[in-house]
Simulated assay, not measured.
Amino acid sequence: MIQILEEPIGVTYASLISLAFDVCDEFILVKRDQIGLHPNAEALLDRLQPYVKEMKRQDEWPGTRLLGHYADVYYFGCTEELKALLLHISNRLYQWMQPEMPEDLCFLKNGKAWLINSAHERMSMIDTTDRSEILKIREIEGIMIY
């Protein structure tokens, strides 16, 4: 497990998201029940609706477990169009936090969490043992890992 020590911002964020789209086949965004959404976040979810592969009611997702609450977890395929959209919408990993945005942008590789992001806690990590992926992560300027 690779712990990311500082929030990826700007070029670092863009490089990390681009690598995640190259490595992974899915990503998720979350809408928690107990936190309202800003109208801009609602508009973003509406814009993303045609790309939703599946929406599940869940009380947990990578990096988060709720107690007594549920959330809508939206699953998307990793396409070039969505990559461009995510890079246009945000330039920071921890910006994916309610109420301003859908929550906890995470990436999945073959159904397994790869980039785990808990924006409220300002924590993120990458779960990989693939040597080539680790080398690519280390090449991203500005990524401080543990």
Rank of each mutant, 00 (worst) to 15 (best):
residue 62 P to S: 14
residue 143 I to N: 00
residue 127 D to P: 02
residue 87 L to A: 08
residue 134 I to T: 08
residue 25 D to K: 10
residue 117 N to R: 06
residue 144 M to Y: 11
residue 111 G to I: 13
residue 142 G to L: 12
residue 1 M to Y: 11
residue 45 L to R: 05
residue 65 R to T: 05
residue 10 G to V: 03
residue 33 D to L: 09
residue 101 M to P: 03
residue 92 R to C: 09
residue 33 D to N: 12
residue 113 A to T: 13
residue 98 Q to D: 07
residue 129 T to N: 08
residue 76 F to H: 02
residue 134 I to E: 09
residue 46 D to P: 05
residue 133 E to L: 06
residue 144 M to G: 07
residue 6 E to R: 15
residue 70 Y to H: 03
residue 139 E to V: 01
residue 103 E to L: 03
residue 107 F to M: 12
residue 27 F to D: 00
residue 19 L to Y: 05
residue 101 M to D: 05
residue 31 K to E: 06
residue 42 E to Y: 08
residue 11 V to D: 02
residue 143 I to L: 15
residue 141 E to Y: 03
residue 65 R to M: 01
residue 123 M to L: 15
residue 54 E to L: 12
residue 112 K to V: 15
residue 128 T to G: 07
residue 119 A to F: 06
residue 22 D to R: 15
residue 37 L to N: 11
residue 17 I to A: 08
residue 119 A to I: 08
residue 96 W to G: 03
residue 63 G to D: 07
residue 58 Q to A: 07
residue 111 G to D: 13
residue 79 T to M: 03
residue 108 L to I: 13
residue 15 S to D: 03
residue 125 M to K: 15
residue 48 L to P: 08
residue 15 S to F: 03
residue 136 K to I: 09
residue 63 G to P: 03
residue 106 C to K: 02
residue 102 P to S: 09
residue 27 F to M: 15
residue 69 H to Y: 10
residue 106 C to A: 10
residue 48 L to M: 10
residue 59 D to Y: 05
residue 99 P to M: 08
residue 106 C to H: 02
residue 40 N to F: 04
residue 62 P to L: 11
residue 100 E to H: 14
residue 40 N to A: 03
residue 57 R to W: 09
residue 20 A to S: 11
residue 142 G to H: 11
residue 52 V to Q: 00
residue 142 G to A: 14
residue 69 H to R: 08
residue 37 L to F: 14
residue 117 N to H: 11
residue 104 D to P: 05
residue 131 R to E: 14
residue 42 E to G: 04
residue 81 E to R: 00
residue 20 A to W: 01
residue 97 M to A: 07
residue 99 P to A: 11
residue 125 M to W: 14
residue 87 L to P: 04
residue 89 I to K: 05
residue 103 E to S: 08
residue 105 L to M: 02
residue 28 I to D: 01
residue 142 G to N: 12
residue 142 G to S: 13
residue 36 G to Y: 13
residue 14 A to Y: 12
residue 113 A to V: 15
residue 46 D to M: 14
residue 142 G to I: 10
residue 139 E to D: 15
residue 31 K to Q: 04
